[in-house]
C-alpha cells in the first residue's frame, strides 16, 4: 500500500495551496473556493487516518468527514449568499473593498 505519509503530504500541500488562495486572492468567490480546498485537505487527512488505524471498523473518521461535507455545504450556501448581497450593495466582490469594520 501507499504509505500513510504520502497522503498526509498531499493533504498538507493542498491545505497550503488553499491557504495561499485565501490570503492572496482578491475575489471573494475565489477565496471561497480556496476555503473549499482547505476543507478537502482536512477530509483527506481524516479518511487517511481512518484507513490506517489498527481497526478500520471504527468509522469515526468517515463520519467526521461526512460532517465536514455538511459544514462545507452550509458554508458555501451562506458564503455565496453573503457575497451576492454584498455585491448588490457595493457593486463589488473584492474582499479588500469591504473594510468598514475598522477604527
Amino acid at each position: 500500500m501507499v504509505p500513510l505519509w504520502l497522503y498526509l503530504a498531499v493533504a498538507a500541500a493542498l491545505f497550503s495551496i488553499g491557504m495561499f488562495g485565501v490570503l492572496t486572492r482578491r475575489n471573494a468567490i475565489a477565496i471561497l473556493m480556496s476555503i473549499e480546498l482547505m476543507l478537502n485537505a482536512v477530509n483527506i487527512n481524516l479518511v487517511a487516518f481512518w484507513r490506517y488505524q489498527e481497526n478500520p471498523a471504527n468509522l469515526s473518521g468517515q463520519v467526521f468527514a461526512i460532517f465536514v461535507f455538511v459544514v462545507a455545504a452550509a458554508e458555501a450556501a451562506v458564503g455565496l449568499a453573503l457575497i451576492i448581497s454584498i455585491y448588490r450593495n457595493r457593486q463589488s466582490v473584492i474582499a479588500e473593498d469591504v473594510d468598514v469594520m475598522k477604527w
Binding site: 491557504m19 485565501v22 490570503l23 477565496i31 474582499a95 469591504v98 473594510d99 475598522k102 477604527w103
Partner: peptide, 17 residues
C-alpha cells in the same frame, strides 16, 4: 499602530497565520 487595523479580512488572516 492602528494602521494595522485596516478592516481587510485577508490582512487579519495574515496575522492569524
Amino acid at each position: 499602530f492602528r494602521q494595522t487595523q485596516t478592516g481587510r479580512v485577508q490582512q487579519y488572516l495574515l496575522f492569524v497565520t
